[in-house]
Design a protein around this nucleic acid. Structure first.
Lengths: 111, 111
DNA sequence: ACAACGTTTCGACATTCATCGAAATATCTA
DNA sequence: TAGATATTTCGATGAATGTCGAAACGTTGT
């Protein structure tokens, strides 16, 4: 039973794009994606990115608010993990709306 | 013979994501994508978005600088058109790097 | 209960981004 | 060449974003 995989609104898409549109956050998200469900703690992420804890929190919040990552507590650690479904929805929006699906003359497609 | 379709750097990806991460610009890009090679003039785009010409130029520049759109002159009009290849490269980056290609435990993929 | 640890919140500050009128530039037409 | 049209550049302004130290908060172990 899949959790609702509904289409993204334009506003939500802008939010997700903006969340990924930052050097630190793109790295952050890629780390979490390759890590999988297990996730990584805030501390480990801060160390990998070499940014102070408060800065990291700021970026994690952007990604969280955009729905691209989730968090859970494990003792005194807080573990973040990528939300694959949200990322799928974003890519879906881009391929459907921004890659020439409708009536692109000459059948030009980019992906 | 395809023009070089090389992989995007992280920096270029951030730039492209940032270019699309705005309400007006996402609409702009979608309009151009569905229009195809023919493109649309700045004037028409400004009218569709209902923004003053100088504001439109600002947004078109962001997209241009990110390489997502191209421009050509036609008389006193300047025509903008989507760069499908650039968009393809962006989506390619996202699917390859941000959707769990490497060693995602449990084979979790988002797209 | 206390101290140590991991993380977030708060507050201040600097930087970047977005908006838009007015002036400048380029092209067409008469 | 003058006037109209299409677009960009410039400059000023306000809003949003990013950075980070210090303090607060929750959890664990003693």
């Amino acid at each position: 039973m899949r959790t609702t995989l509904r289409r993204l609104t334009a506003a939500k898409t802008v939010e997700a794009l903006g969340a990924l549109a930052h050097e630190h956050r793109l790295v952050l998200f890629r780390l979490l994606v390759q890590r999988g469900e297990e996730g990584l703690s805030a501390g480990v992420l801060a160390e990998r990115l070499a940014v102070p804890p408060s800065s990291l929190t700021f970026h994690l919040q952007q990604l969280t608010h955009a729905g691209l990552i989730g968090q859970r507590r494990d003792g005194r650690h807080i573990i973040y993990a990528a939300d694959y479904e949200a990322m799928g929805a974003l890519v879906g929006y881009l391929t459907e709306n921004c890659c020439g699906d409708g009536t692109p003359p000459k059948g030009a497609k980019c992906c």
